[in-house]
Amino acid sequence: MTVIDGPSGLTPDALSEIFQAPVTGVQWEKVGSGQIGACYRLRLEGAEGVPRRLVAKLAAEDEASRAFLGPAYRAEVSFYQDIAPTVAVRTPRCHYSALSEDNTTFVLLLEDLHPATQGDQIAGCTPQQAADAVTNLAGLHGPRWCDPTLLDLPWLSAVGEDDAATLSEVFAPAVETFTERFAGELDDRDVRTLRETAEAIAAWVTGRPERFGLVHGDYRLDNLIFPPAPERGVTAVDWQTLSLGHPLRDLAFFLGTGLEPGDRATHERSLVGAYHAALTGYGVDGYDLDECFDDYRFAALQGPLITVLGCAYGARTERGDRMFLTMTARSCAAIRDLGTLGLV
């Protein structure tokens, strides 16, 4: 399999070999910030059967960071190769995927979803968009719900007791760094909630193991692509954080960070209900709506966990800071409203 290392490798010859059809012209432009990987929008000319528009996702331009990012690259390529055909979540069609033996270089050639547009984590979303997103999320969780064969995939990791202890050791100082960075901008109640979350995170991350499945890990508006209104059918992207865990972590993360607290409180029962109804459509049984809502309450610590760690390890930007503050305020409010810490 041909692995392309950088946009200079997106040549007519290389793409002709991939598509087994003549590609006579390639134009590309970079899209996105490229902190974890680099994305390019391609326009192709060639024989019938050659896609005219594609998105190419490649390894980060900073070669020094690639060894650290290898597990993320392996997860995303493996998702498209091993998992996507077995679930019902809407994702871009993957035309081609390849990964180097050391996992530091990869290529994905994905469907260009234009004119659909990316969600905005800061602006939030409407209840209708949220309903579309949670129904799509059930398409990830439902088909492989508590599927023991997932445990046989060597690239798909679940958090054990040792991992939980390590996470606690990492997360607690990350919370203090986060609160220092945003001193004066964080509500005092949110600071307390973050610190209480840090104390509970080790027990939480391994909690309720009787229900497990695929976890996107970062299912939020910036990773969702919405079609132009009035069309429905949100598409999920960025599968580098895929893991095994409690599936409701994705649902709680999405609703807790994507909706303003008032909107979440008003609509969350109906949205959890829509998610649960979609789950049952995929054959999930013996799991009633009350249990589902209780798991949703329990899972809300995913919000500060991902937000704080994302802030700690991502490159700092003005939009990023606003996003992290917005997500923190929303998710901490959800934890308090739902009484999550009392369930851990």
Rank of each mutant, 00 (worst) to 15 (best):
F253D: 04
E180A: 14
A229D: 07
P230V: 05
H246V: 10
W239H: 00
T266S: 14
G262I: 12
E185R: 12
H267D: 02
F254E: 00
F253V: 03
E210S: 15
S270C: 13
L194Q: 06
V215W: 08
R269A: 12
V215L: 13
E199P: 02
F226Q: 03
A252H: 03
A274F: 06
L259S: 04
P261A: 14
R220S: 11
R249E: 05
G213E: 09
F226K: 06
F254R: 00
L248I: 03
V191L: 13
Q240L: 09
P173Y: 02
T257C: 15
A202F: 07
R192G: 01
D188T: 09
A174F: 01
E199L: 13
W204F: 14
L242E: 03
F254K: 02
G273E: 10
H216K: 07
W239P: 00
D190G: 12
E185I: 04
G245A: 14
A236Y: 01
F253G: 01
G213W: 06
D188Y: 05
R195M: 06
P209K: 15
P209F: 14
G245K: 06
V205G: 05
S243N: 02
L251A: 07
S243R: 10
V191F: 10
A236G: 03
V205S: 12
L224P: 02
P228M: 10
G256V: 04
G207K: 10
V175W: 10
A202H: 08
L224H: 07
A229Y: 03
R208H: 15
P230W: 08
R195T: 08
E196N: 10
R181P: 01
T193H: 03
Q240A: 14
T206H: 07
G258C: 15
G258P: 00
L259Y: 08
T241Q: 09
L221S: 09
D250W: 04
E260M: 12
R192K: 09
R211F: 02
E185F: 11
L255D: 04
T266G: 12
D187H: 14
G256Q: 03
N223H: 10
E180K: 07
P209V: 14
L194A: 12
V205C: 13
A174R: 05
P228K: 12
L224A: 10
A203W: 06
R249A: 12
D218C: 13
R264A: 13
G258V: 05
G245M: 10
T197A: 07
R181T: 15
A198R: 01
R269I: 04
L186H: 04
E231K: 05
G245I: 08
E176P: 00
R269V: 09
P261W: 11
W204C: 11
G273A: 13
E196M: 08
R211C: 07
G213A: 13
T257G: 12
L259H: 13
P228D: 11
D187R: 14
T197R: 00
R192M: 00
F226C: 06
A252W: 08
H246F: 06
H216M: 07
L221P: 02
V215F: 12
G273D: 09
R192L: 02
V191E: 10
A174E: 05
A200N: 05
L186P: 00
P261Y: 11
L244M: 12
V272G: 01
H216I: 02
L251Y: 06
L255Q: 01
R192T: 01
A265W: 05
T179M: 07
R269F: 04
P247L: 08
V191K: 09
N223I: 08
A174H: 02
R249P: 03
